[in-house]
């Protein structure tokens, strides 16, 4: 038996092992979260606000955090789309192929994508202090918008760059302007936009570091943009640091809710991607 065949077998074994390890991690995380979160999860958790003495284990729920997270994520997703779709069109339709300008812009988005959310948070907080703003829903929305714009741009751009040149030419040769060609482009990259949106929502809803300084935390549902807002990740974080077991259990429940939302989003992502691909030209 040659040594190279032994080596082949051993290496294959190691590879199988590492792949299984990845599964083990996924399984362990999901199992732990479900096992600890499920017993503490009940209807009250989802539908009521924290009552008096909630943080020493009395009754109440997490509605404030759920609604706060939804407000922030919803608003910043819309804002993020409004900003990033034009950018992607500009890079891919208005600028020429292999344009230097586009290449520099892409590098900048790559770097922005890599900047940690805590830095975004610190930066946004400085700006807010500069303008005399307190921690508020608006602050949270702004910082999350800034955070997800690079995610939006990068993931949509990836799809848009594969846009067949022939398709643009087909539209131009009918006499369409570049702006009118966008009608074509948007249908072709629709699945990309859908996945990018869900990816960003996932990131936005799970981010705790950025909203920590900017959105603050509160027990009530914000009624205006200038009021602080609670978010789910912070609900997990704060309650977990409490010494009281009942409160800690609620943190597990909140983590379960958060995980559930993220998993549903990624599942939806797959379904929608398949749905939107209907018109796409391969």
């Amino acid at each position: 038996m040659k040594i190279k065949f032994v080596e082949e077998k051993v290496m294959k074994g190691i590879m199988l092992l590492t792949t299984l390890l990845v599964f083990l991690f996924v399984g362990s995380i999901l199992y732990t979260i479900i096992k600890n979160g499920l017993p503490a999860l009940n209807w009250e958790m989802l539908t009521s606000l924290p009552g008096g003495g909630f943080y020493i284990g009395k009754e109440g729920g997490l509605l404030n955090a759920i609604v706060g997270s939804l407000y922030i994520v919803g608003a910043s997703t819309v804002l993020g789309l409004v900003v990033s779709i034009p950018v992607v069109f500009y890079l891919n339709v208005y600028l020429k192929r292999n344009s230097k300008r586009a290449s520099w812009a892409r590098l900048a988005y790559d770097v922005l994508f890599g900047i940690p959310s805590i830095v975004y948070g610190a930066f946004a907080f400085t700006i807010m202090i500069y303008f005399g703003l307190k921690t508020s829903l608006a602050g949270g929305i702004i910082v999350i918008t800034l955070l997800i714009i690079p995610i939006f741009i990068r993931s949509m751009d990836e799809i848009a760059r594969e846009l067949p040149q022939d398709m643009l030419h087909a539209s131009y040769s009918l006499g369409a302007t570049r702006f009118e060609t966008i009608k074509v482009v948007i249908r072709q990259i629709a699945p990309g936009i859908a996945t990018a949106t869900l990816l960003s929502i996932g990131r936005a809803i799970g981010d705790a570091a950025a909203v920590m300084f900017t959105a603050g935390y509160t027990d009530s549902i914000p009624t205006s943009l200038s009021q602080p807002a609670a978010t789910l990740p912070l609900a997990v974080f704060f309650q977990l640091s409490s010494p009281i077991p009942e409160v800690q259990e609620r943190a597990y429940a909140a983590a379960l809710i958060l995980t559930g939302i993220v998993l549903v989003l990624s599942l939806l992502g797959r379904i929608i991607t398949n749905r939107f691909s209907k018109n796409k030209i391969q």
Binding site: V26, I29, G206, L258, L265
Partner: peptide
């Protein structure tokens, strides 16, 4: 794995 929030 990539989608799970940091806090989880």
């Amino acid at each position: 794995l990539a989608g799970l929030p940091s806090v989880v």
